[in-house]
């Protein structure tokens, strides 16, 4: 097994057996189920637009809790030193931590597809926006987990890592609001930084490469910076 495989196996075990994972999973599914039931019974419309926006908020709030432990816990326990003195590349350590956190989010998103299944069984939903919504959630999760992992690699305090991640997500969420007080062309930059601005088109069924590029570029940048943070010692 490659070093990445060995590390990923360990990280997946640690992630899925952690009480944090079960607590986050429970909250996620409870709130998502509540939102789905409420929107379905109130609007009686077979779409998941409202649910996707709720899941967006849930990911912004819960991903920091999932990623806060990845590096901060190991740094505090001293075990990060064991990983960094082993003959493995820093990128393997980063990817293992990143993929295990992303896997937990993916499991939650897969569980939430039961809502789409319920709609398909009892109604005739437009599957385009549903597929777009899940693609958006996947891309959003990849970026949020990347940024959360980056913050966790910088500090040994899990609460600081979670707070910094949440702060970053909220700043990105409302980045386009800052544009109103900025001159051209800087305002355009902040409009394009918006987390929600790149999310909403997917949910309405419009998939733009630029929106996907935003999430993918952000994810790669976060992973690059995390690797640099580990390598710079």
């Amino acid at each position: 097994m490659s070093a990445l495989g060995v590390l990923l196996k360990k990280e997946l075990h640690a992630t899925f057996t952690s009480p944090v994972a079960w607590a986050v999973g429970g909250v996620f599914l409870l709130v998502a189920g509540y939102t789905f039931s409420l929107s379905l019974f109130m609007t009686k419309v077979a779409n998941l637009t409202y649910v996707f926006h709720q899941l967006y908020i849930l990911l912004v709030l819960l991903v920091p809790v999932i990623t806060m432990r990845s590096f901060a816990e190991e740094r505090k326990a001293g075990t990060l030193e064991l990983l960094l003195t082993a003959p493995v590349r820093e990128i393997s350590v980063v990817l293992a931590k990143y993929l295990s956190s992303l896997a937990l989010v993916l499991v939650l998103l897969v569980a939430s597809t039961s809502y789409a299944a319920v709609l398909a069984l009892h109604g005739d939903p437009d599957l385009g926006p549903i597929a777009g919504g899940y693609l958006a959630l996947l891309l959003l999760a990849s970026l949020l987990v990347g940024v959360g992992t980056l913050w966790s690699s910088i500090t040994e305090n899990q609460v600081v890592a979670a707070s910094a991640s949440l702060g970053t997500f909220l700043m990105l969420w409302f980045a386009d609001s800052v544009a109103y007080i900025l001159p051209e062309p800087i305002d355009l930059f902040f409009v394009n930084l918006s987390l929600l601005g790149h999310f909403a088109p997917f949910v309405s069924g419009s998939v733009f490469l630029s929106d996907a590029g935003y999430y993918l570029t952000g994810t790669l940048l976060a992973l690059f910076l995390t690797t640099r943070a580990l390598a710079d010692r």
């Binding site: 326990a77 001293g78 075990t79 030193e81 064991l82 003195t85 003959p87 493995v88």
Partner: peptide
């Protein structure tokens, strides 16, 4: 990587 492969390390706090 080649250098690290040949080293075993016991940190002070025994993590």
């Amino acid at each position: 990587l080649e250098a690290r492969r040949r080293v075993g390390y016991v940190p002070e706090s025994h993590p």
